[in-house]
Design a protein around this nucleic acid. Structure first.
Lengths: 185, 185
DNA sequence: CGAGAACGGAACAGTCGTGTTCCATAAATG
DNA sequence: CATTTATGGAACACGACTGTTCCGTTCTCG
């Protein structure tokens, strides 16, 4: 079940992406809705994920992977803490609808099966602590608070573009501006 | 149907409050769950609200009322804009779980039946514009963005206390601190 | 081109929430 | 205390979603 032919890997991706798009708008959507969005038969979904819970579990690891790679791309230990924070903000913003889904299902980032923090969470926390240590971040706001704020701001920004049709770059710009001012000492 | 005896008014409130508590945790919860939380029979709920949608509609006006009165209590046109913003933040924080519900259902604050803004929305927007005018708020962040940020921060703060058991006052303190820095010029 | 893999769709049983009716009981009210 | 009034619970029909099976079709790759 690890090795998938090109075709299977492709439709699997299509189903997962469709699930993110549909479930981020309506977390109670039916599998038929997901199938339609994916351009696939409902039975095909069951071929890849026996039960709905299997799809949701796969969705978890899928998004978690995307979050992890986005975090790695941001290279949190390079440059100043503020620069790194802005980079990771931009990377996360690219997650798009996955952002909404991840925010609505916080159990993803905290215990997606285990009760352990993810690497991304730890890296983010370390980053804020680095900012605390070198005096570039406000020491009055604990790291956990700052990371939660980051997600909430990203959620707001993405919703802002999705619902009100604001251009992506301007939403991201507002998000970065607010975040910068928040963490400043 | 406007005049309710004391008893009916009381159970109606119990049902609405239970619905807020349950649906803010799981928006797909069944009416049986709400009934249990309210300490009431499932049929009783149908006596007060024929269909699920009727309960949700009543929930909208209930929360909208609470938001309106909270906004009035904050006296947005008194004192400096910053002081007023902090007051309204504190008032909204008292909404508790209603906060999560309102944040998850943004259609409440924008068009709960009509496609019109609520009084609270307008008052908040005016407040931020006042801050822009007298130079006490950052002109680079439009009023709509600031109000959305306010809700996002409140959501974060309340979730912070609910999930991580942080004391209410400290969460609110963090929220106020972040908000203050955000709107500062 | 041909075999095997991948797929779509129909059909079916099972489950769960919903909305309704009916009746017996508990509570409030005058 | 007697009469409304409010309630809880059982029972039922209905609809939506789910999970499964089966079969014919399409595609993909050797």
């Amino acid at each position: 079940m690890d090795v998938l032919t090109g075709t299977r890997a492709r439709t699997r991706r299509a189903i997962l992406d469709a699930a993110v798009a549909v479930l981020s708008k309506n977390s109670g959507a039916s599998l038929a809705d997901v199938a339609t969005e994916a351009g696939v038969g409902r039975t095909t979904i069951h071929r890849y994920f026996r039960e709905r819970s299997d799809l949701l579990a796969a969705l978890s690891v899928y998004l978690l992977e995307r979050i992890e790679t986005a975090t790695e791309r941001a290279r949190l230990d390079e440059g100043t803490a503020l620069e790194a924070l802005e980079r990771v903000c931009q990377e996360y913003f690219e997650l798009g609808d996955g952002l909404l889904f991840a925010f609505d299902n916080p159990q993803l980032t905290t215990w997606e099966g285990w009760d352990e923090e993810t690497d991304a969470d730890r890296a983010l926390t370390r980053l804020v602590q680095r900012g605390h240590a070198d005096g570039s971040f406000d020491p009055g706001q604990p790291a956990e608070w700052v990371t939660q704020m980051l997600w909430a701001m990203l959620y707001t920004a993405w919703q802002h573009t999705r619902d009100q049709g604001a251009p992506k770059h301007s939403s991201l710009e507002l998000c970065l501006r607010s975040l910068r001012k928040c963490v400043a000492p």
